[in-house]
C-alpha cells in the first residue's frame, strides 16, 4: 500500500476512534443518569416526558461529530469534500432520494405489519386503536402525521444521522469495503442503543432472552436500516434524507398500527421475536438498494477526504 494511503487510513482510524469515544461515553452517561434520577424505572414505566428527556441523548452523535472535528482540527465545512454534509442539493434527480426518504418508512412499516399478520406475529383487531383512546379517523392520519412530524421535528433524528452517517460511515467506507463497513457500522449503532434496549425502549422487556437477544436484534436491525440510510446519504451527498427517513420511521407511519395487535410476552417464540415483520420488510428494501447501489450515481464529492496536496493546490 502506498505510504500516503497508509497514512490517511491511520488518520481515518484515529479520528474514528475519537468520534466513537465522544459518541459513546457522554451519551451512555446521560442514559444512566436519567435512569438513576427515575429510580431505575424501565422504559414503559417512565412518563412520556421523561422518555423524551432520555431520548435527548440521541443528539449525542452529532455533537460528538462536531467535537471530533474540533479536536482533530478537520474543521467544520458544511458542504463539499469531507464535510458535515449539511447541504441540500435537489439537482440531477437527487429530489428522488428525498422523496424516497419520506415514503420508504411508510412502505416498510405497512409491509412490516402485513408480514406480522402473515407470520402470525400479530392479530388483526378492528378495534385495537380504541385501547389508546383514539378516534378511528386519527388512525388514517398516521402516515401524514408521521411525515409532517418527521420533516418538521427531524432534529432528534438529525442528532443521530449527523453523527453516524455524517461522520462514522464515510470513514468506515474508506477504511474497509462497503459490505464490512455496513455490517460494522450497524453493529456499532446497535450497541450504542444497548442501555435503552436493556430497559425496554426498542422491544419492550417481555421477550425471550431479554435483554441480550434484544441487543442482538437491535444490531441486526441497525445493519439493515444502516444500508438504507447510507444509500440515501451517499446518493444525495447530504445527511438530511437519512434524518428524515429516520424521523418518519420513528413516528410510526403505518395505518395498520391501529389495527394489528402484536403478539407479545411469553407466547412470543424466539423466531417470531427475531424475525418480526418490520425487520423482514427493512431487510427486503435494503436488499433491493444493495442491488441498485452501483446503478444509481452518488454524490461522490462529499465523501472524499481532503488531502494536504488538495489544500496546497
Amino acid at each position: 500500500m502506498a505510504p500516503e494511503k497508509n497514512a490517511s487510513r491511520k488518520e481515518d482510524l484515529k479520528r474514528l476512534l475519537i468520534y466513537l469515544l465522544f459518541a459513546f461515553v457522554p451519551v451512555w452517561l446521560w442514559f444512566l443518569a436519567i435512569r438513576a434520577l427515575t429510580g431505575g424505572q424501565l422504559w414503559n414505566d417512565m412518563s412520556d416526558m421523561v422518555q423524551s428527556l432520555m431520548a435527548l441523548g440521541m443528539l449525542g452523535p452529532v455533537l460528538a461529530h462536531v467535537a471530533t472535528r474540533l479536536v482533530t482540527k478537520e474543521g467544520c465545512p458544511l458542504t463539499g469534500r469531507d464535510s458535515m454534509m449539511l447541504g441540500i442539493d435537489l439537482k440531477n434527480r437527487k429530489w428522488i432520494i428525498f422523496l424516497l426518504a419520506i415514503f420508504l418508512p411508510w412502505l416498510y412499516s405497512e409491509m412490516g405489519n402485513a408480514l406480522d399478520l402473515l407470520l402470525g406475529n400479530g392479530v388483526f383487531d378492528p378495534e385495537y386503536y380504541l385501547e389508546y383512546g383514539m378516534d378511528k379517523r386519527t388512525v388514517f392520519l398516521f402516515p401524514l402525521a408521521a411525515i409532517t412530524s418527521g420533516v418538521i421535528a427531524s432534529f432528534a433524528a438529525f442528532g443521530e444521522e449527523g453523527g453516524w452517517r455524517g461522520y462514522m460511515m464515510p470513514r468506515l467506507l474508506r477504511l474497509m469495503g462497503r459490505t464490512p463497513a455496513l455490517i460494522l457500522g450497524g453493529v456499532i449503532w446497535g450497541l450504542w442503543h444497548a442501555p435503552l434496549t436493556a430497559i425496554g425502549h426498542n422491544f419492550g422487556t417481555d421477550y425471550p432472552g431479554f435483554p441480550w437477544l434484544g441487543i442482538l436484534k437491535m444490531c441486526i436491525l441497525c445493519i439493515f436500516l444502516g444500508v438504507i440510510l447510507t444509500f440515501l446519504t451517499e446518493k444525495s451527498g447530504s445527511v438530511w434524507p437519512a434524518a428524515i427517513l429516520h424521523a418518519v420511521g420513528n413516528a410510526g407511519p403505518s395505518i395498520l398500527n391501529g389495527f394489528v395487535r402484536p403478539e407479545e410476552g411469553a407466547e412470543q417464540g424466539l423466531f417470531s421475536f427475531l424475525f418480526s415483520g418490520r425487520l423482514i420488510s427493512i431487510l427486503l428494501i435494503a436488499a433491493v438498494l444493495l442491488i441498485l447501489w452501483n446503478r444509481v450515481p452518488d454524490a461522490k464529492e462529499a465523501s472524499k477526504p481532503v488531502r494536504e496536496t488538495d489544500r496546497a493546490a
Partner: peptide
C-alpha cells in the same frame, strides 16, 4: 427550523425534570 427545534428541546428539558403529574404533562 432551528428556533422550533430549540423550543422543543427546552420543553423536553423542563418537562422531563418536573414532578410527573397529569397536569404538568398537559401543560407541556
Amino acid at each position: 427550523y432551528v428556533l422550533y427545534s430549540l423550543s422543543m428541546v427546552w420543553s423536553i428539558c423542563v418537562g422531563g425534570l418536573a414532578v410527573q403529574t397529569d397536569r404538568i404533562r398537559d401543560v407541556i
